[in-house]
């Protein structure tokens, strides 16, 4: 089957080893390409109020600064966590790429705490909605950088992803063979944790009701 999405393990592995200066040049090229392929996205971003969002992939050594609004859009690689920004978005690279490509609901990721947002929420809401308006496929945009070699590049990416998947599955199998009870135990543990949480809430409510009854009977 044709690979449809940028393989996250491949992207993560590449971004872990590529020096920031080289990564920046690649990002500049990607942004130039995306400006051509998604002109509406850029005009919508540039119509927003000026803001700076720091994107912190928790499994990468780099952070990114996305500045948009007032007619400009830029994405910069940074290693600093202290630069001034309007808002911060933190999560694993896979989660961030899913968000960018509209594959997963941002609210769901927020409910489950797969992503964390701090700072000016209106900036993040505007950014999220503006990106979600556009149907982005990062694999198309990245492979387009290879010009006439876009198709072979896509094929190679697909092969690497398949090998990576197979390796991941095999490692999982080996782990399960070593510890056959690990998975059911974890699921059971999660269910019990949820049940304990629900019981705690009920208990708190009952306690409040008890205290109210006590107060009203005095």
């Amino acid at each position: 089957m044709q690979q449809n999405h940028l393989p996250t393990p491949l992207a993560r592995a590449a971004m872990r080893v590529i020096p920031a200066s080289v990564l920046q040049r690649m990002i500049d090229a990607l942004m130039r390409g995306m400006r051509q392929s998604h002109p509406r996205l850029f005009s919508n971003l540039e119509r927003l109020d000026a803001a700076v969002v720091r994107i912190e992939p928790s499994d990468l050594p780099h952070n990114f600064t996305l500045a948009f609004g007032h007619g400009e859009t830029s994405l910069t690689v940074t290693s600093s966590k202290d630069s001034v920004c309007s808002a911060r978005l933190k999560g694993k690279l896979a989660a961030l790429l899913d968000l960018l490509e509209g594959r997963i609901d941002g609210d769901m990721m927020f409910f489950s705490r797969s992503i964390e947002i701090t700072g000016d929420t209106s900036v993040m809401v505007a950014l999220r909605n503006t990106i979600d308006r556009e149907e982005i496929n990062l694999l198309d945009d990245v492979t387009a950088l290879f010009g006439p070699f876009a198709r072979p590049a896509r094929h190679v990416a697909s092969l690497i992803d398949k090998v990576g998947q197979r390796m991941k599955e095999r490692i999982q199998e080996i782990n399960e063979e070593r510890s056959p009870d690990a998975q059911p135990a974890k699921a059971e543990c999660d269910a019990m944790r949820a049940e304990v949480q629900a019981l705690k809430t009920r208990l708190a409510k009952l306690e409040v009701r008890r205290q109210r009854t006590e107060v009203s009977s005095q």
């Binding site: 949480q197 809430t201 708190a204 409040v208 205290q211 109210r212």
Partner: peptide, 20 residues
């Protein structure tokens, strides 16, 4: 811990020393 929407009706308030 799952996060709710930041709306007043889904707030966790402290009454009689208990947050609920």
């Amino acid at each position: 811990e799952p996060a709710p929407y930041p709306t007043p009706c889904k707030g966790r308030y402290v009454t009689h020393g208990q947050a609920s």
